[in-house]
Simulated assay, not measured.
Amino acid sequence: MAYNFIEVENRLGAHNYKPLDVVLTKGEGVWVWDVDGNKYMDCLSAYSAVNQGHCHPEILQVLKDQAEKLTLTSRAFRNDQLAHFYEELCELTGSHKVLPMNSGAEAVETAIKAVRKWGYEVKGVPEDRAEIIVCADNFHGRTITIVGFSTDPVSRAGFGPFTPGFKIVPFGDSKALEKAVTKNTVGFLAEPIQGEAGVVIPPDGYLKKARQLCDDHNIVMVLDEIQTGLGRTGKLLAEEHEGVEADLTLVGKALSGGFYPVSAVLSNTEVLGVLKPGEHGSTFGGNPLACAVARKAMEVLVKEKLIENAATVGEYFLNGLKTVQNPMIRETRGRGLLIAVEFKPGAGGARQYCEKLRDNGILCKETHENIIRFAPPLVITKEETDWALKKIIPVISS
């Protein structure tokens, strides 16, 4: 009898995910194969972690080479990859300081700690009074602190009590943001495009207004680019679409090309400068294997012009999807290769379409019940996009 992967997962694993019933075993570029040999186009990219494509051969080789030499020292000692990683990441992004972590949620937690400490030591906010403004419908991770300022009841319910010190305002509403500012406001944390909320793009000028407001009131602007950064939206960072520069920018996911958990807080010197030895850290953060992999992953993004490809092919993909004439589609939107098709509530939910697409060789995932997100690896070609559109359009047209 064949091994039943799904039955064993359901029996032995915690049911904290509801994946599509496909069991994958191999990946290359934009393609993945299941245990039965069926081939699919990956239109999720592990939530944008494999921007460089599955199992990119150059990143894979670096992983192998470094794993044979040195994988982990902890930060108790120095290693010969960390300085190069700092230098190359700062050069790529124009940052002054880097604090390496592992997961995206760790990067967010790091930013919260640094901004609060900056508020007390530099801005002069009274101890334990610091406030950080966040946006409704945000997704910054799954820790207790982070879900405490989520507005998603599924993320919050049953996990309190929560960490105080956060104010929630509507995303894209600069007037509401301004109204929420007090003398104790130390930070504003937002995604430049809300990915998990369904590729919600703020009004033009919103980030510029937020940047000016932060400048006027001495507030640290923190942009979570863990999903939108590193080429996904057709720019290196999504903040570039409005020509703004955050004080702290958070990156992760594609920073390793999907090979290893790597994240980083990018900062000006002033904010990260408040952290002293012993006040924050991670055993695996900045390890030599992570640094070596991330260095090559960044090089691939630039060398293979994947950021430019995301802009041109993303526009092509979006325009193709916009040709669909289905009265149950509320909106088709996107930027670069971060695209969403939102159905009206009466359409019966987006998961049914994801299941039909799976049966037609396309893997994607619903979010917030009525939205499908299309985010293939940035290596996708126009020819592969044409293949995808031929599969997708008939399914979502009815």
Rank of each mutant, 00 (worst) to 15 (best):
T151A: 05
T151G: 10
D152A: 13
D152P: 08
D152G: 09
P153F: 05
P153A: 12
V154H: 13
V154S: 12
S155I: 14
R156V: 15
G158I: 03
G158D: 06
G158S: 05
F159C: 04
P161W: 09
P161R: 11
F162Q: 09
F162N: 07
T163A: 07
T163N: 07
G165S: 06
F166D: 02
F166E: 11
F166P: 05
I168Y: 01
I168N: 07
V169W: 03
V169P: 08
V169C: 03
V169N: 02
V169H: 01
F171T: 11
F171Y: 15
F171V: 11
G172S: 07
S174V: 13
S174W: 02
S174Y: 04
S174E: 06
S174R: 08
K175D: 14
K175I: 00
K175N: 13
L177I: 14
K179I: 01
K179V: 05
K179S: 09
A180H: 03
V181M: 07
K183W: 01
K183Q: 14
N184F: 08
N184S: 10
T185N: 06
G187Y: 00
G187D: 00
G187L: 03
F188P: 00
L189A: 02
A190M: 15
E191I: 00
E191N: 15
E191P: 03
Q194P: 08
G195I: 04
G195V: 12
G195D: 11
E196C: 12
E196L: 15
E196M: 15
A197N: 09
G198L: 12
V199Y: 07
V199P: 10
I201G: 09
P202V: 04
P203L: 02
D204F: 00
D204W: 02
Y206H: 10
Y206W: 14
L207H: 10
K208P: 05
A210E: 07
R211E: 15
R211A: 14
R211N: 13
Q212R: 12
L213P: 02
D215G: 06
D216R: 13
D216H: 01
M221S: 06
M221D: 07
V222H: 01
D224S: 13
D224G: 04
E225R: 03
E225D: 12
I226W: 11
Q227E: 11
T228F: 06
T228K: 06
G229W: 00
G231W: 05
T233E: 13
T233Y: 03
T233H: 12
E239T: 14
H241D: 04
H241N: 04
E242K: 05
E242F: 13
G243P: 01
G243V: 02
V244L: 13
E245R: 15
A246V: 10
A246M: 04
L248D: 06
L248T: 12
L250N: 10
